[in-house]
């Protein structure tokens, strides 16, 4: 029974990290109707920045995380300016945006590989020391990752549903042209969305790097977030969170009770089964409301 609870806590924690990425996909998709494939590069970039801030400059963990967030926001907003905005202004089909995103992804990941090398790095923080509730041992980093991820999601919810710029973003996700007729600046919305998703991917990268390792292709895990965001319903923020938590718990249980070899197999099987019964995802709406 203790093992089961440990698995659940660990699953929720990794699910919370997935949800940062899945929410990022959902945010971009809800406004621009394309999937930002460059996301996994941002995640790896964020992890690398934090890693080197600690190992080269001996920064404390929180300062390294902060530096990583800021730099990843710069990268994310910069890539929007260079790779997406020119297409958006020319009203290019969304397929072009996706291809542009893939290009940005390949470029950034390969630059990381070229500059830093492809080896696996252990994140230089002490994640091992567990702490106990009764007989259940919980990894401290698991707890921290879960708590911070949920706090960030709560902050994002507050921003979107309780502030004026948040209302502007929601309106843009419904009808971007009419939002601009209300005085919502499209470029400002793009800045907000890419800054927020950049920050989310950096935090996810740091926690994922701590749990596993830091390497240029670590961003491949975003495919899990992609699955979660489709399971939850493309473009739906609550859906992205719910999908991520289910996936995180499912994965950990499969790895714990069946075999970690089959973990990813189950993830994809789960996606197929959900889509068979809920073609729009669990919380996806076929129509207009996304956020």
């Amino acid at each position: 029974m203790e093992l089961f609870f440990q698995q659940i806590v660990s699953g929720i924690s990794i699910g919370a990290v997935y949800s940062l990425l899945a929410v990022g996909y959902a945010l971009v998709y809800s406004v621009y109707n394309f999937t930002n494939w460059a996301f996994d590069a941002f995640m790896a970039f964020g992890a690398f920045m934090a890693f080197y801030a600690i190992s080269l400059f001996f920064m404390p963990f929180w300062a390294a995380a902060l530096i990583s967030i800021v730099l990843t926001i710069v990268l994310s907003v910069g890539s929007e300016r260079l790779a997406y905005r020119p297409l958006r202004l020319r009203k290019a089909p969304r397929l072009f945006m996706m291809i542009s995103a893939m290009g940005a992804n390949l470029m950034i990941v390969n630059l990381l590989n070229l500059i830093f090398g492809g080896s696996f790095r252990r994140f230089p923080v002490d994640a091992a020391k567990p702490f106990f509730i009764g007989n259940v041992s919980i990894g401290r980093m698991d707890l921290l990752a879960g708590a911070i991820s949920f706090a960030i999601l709560a902050l994002l919810w507050w921003f979107l549903y309780r502030t004026k710029p948040g209302l502007g973003v929601r309106a843009s996700s419904i009808d971007i042209m009419t939002a601009s007729l209300m005085g919502v600046n499209n470029d400002a919305v793009a800045f907000i969305i890419f800054a927020v998703t950049g920050a989310l991917s950096s935090v996810a990268g740091v926690f994922y790097g701590i749990k596993y390792a830091v390497f240029p292709y670590m961003g491949l895990v975003t495919i899990k977030a992609m699955i979660a965001s489709i399971v939850g319903g493309l473009g739906s923020l609550p859906g992205a969170v719910v999908g991520s938590l289910i996936l995180g718990v499912l994965e950990t249980l499969v790895a714990g009770y069946i075999s970690s070899t089959y973990r990813d197999l189950f993830s994809f099987l789960f996606l197929v089964i959900i889509l068979l019964f809920f073609p729009n995802g669990l919380m996806g709406k076929s129509g207009d409301e996304k956020l």
Partner: peptide, 26 residues
Amino acid sequence: ITLVPEGRRIFAPLTVRENLMLGAYT
């Protein structure tokens, strides 16, 4: 200059109040 677009283009999922707040965005 504010345009009431053809076909109204109400933000359907948002409440009447939220629609009005968007009108006052500036």
